[in-house]
């Protein structure tokens, strides 16, 4: 099971059980010890803080954003438009008028190499996703007018790109060569 889904399901069970337990306690009305409740609140707050700190320490060093110190082995240019992406080693289409002439259908990259996808768009914002042949998402970024978003991926298995979130009908593919 996906770890995030497991965390969510366990948390949901704990929260639901706590709310149910508290709700059932109303069948026996009585006074509440506020001092004890506040001590418990303190324990809960510290516990939550520690859990969050642990998750921050574990996840922040693994951000997907490129670090300049590591140069990519391979650069792939991705240009989006409604409703297609061009994927090429050349700069790719520079305008909608030259799209067909400069469209590159297939790019091959080495398995295990650090590949940098430089993603831009000629019209609107697009979502770009890279999937395994089984349809599992490997990595994603978005294409934004006027900007180049740099997505770095190390392929350890064949992949196909791209996906356009806006009813993509003309996406071409790239091939990862083992």
């Amino acid at each position: 099971m996906n770890p995030s889904l497991a965390i969510f399901l366990v948390s949901t069970l704990v929260i639901a059980a706590t709310f149910l337990w508290v709700a059932r306690s109303t069948s026996e009305p009585g006074a509440i010890d506020y001092a004890r409740a506040n001590r418990l609140r303190g324990v809960f707050g510290v516990s939550l803080g520690v859990i969050l700190a642990i998750f921050l320490v574990l996840t922040l060093p693994r951000l997907p954003y490129p670090v300049e110190a590591a140069a990519p082995a391979h650069v792939v240019n991705v240009v989006g438009k409604q409703y297609a992406f061009s994927v090429s080693e050349s700069p790719g289409p520079q305008s909608l008028a030259t799209w067909e002439a400069e469209f590159s259908p297939v790019v091959e990259v080495l398995q295990g190499a650090l590949v940098e996808f430089r993603v831009r768009t000629l019209d609107v914002n697009h979502g770009l996703g890279i999937y395994t042949p089984q349809g599992a998402l490997l990595a994603q970024t978005q294409a934004m007018p006027g900007y180049v978003n740099r997505l770095r991926v190390q392929f350890d298995q064949p992949a196909r790109i791209p996906r356009c979130v806006w009813n993509s009908v003309a996406c071409r593919t790239t091939r990862c060569v083992p």
Binding site: T26, L48, F55
Partner: peptide, 30 residues
């Protein structure tokens, strides 16, 4: 990410916890 994490603390530790304390063994009529 840090703000999203931190904002859960007042929500959980103050509001949600207080709501549970408010109800716990109260004369709540459901």
């Amino acid at each position: 990410q840090v703000s999203s994490y931190l904002i859960s603390v007042p929500a959980a530790v103050v509001t949600i916890f207080s709501a549970l304390v408010l109800v716990y063994h109260s004369q709540e009529r459901w």
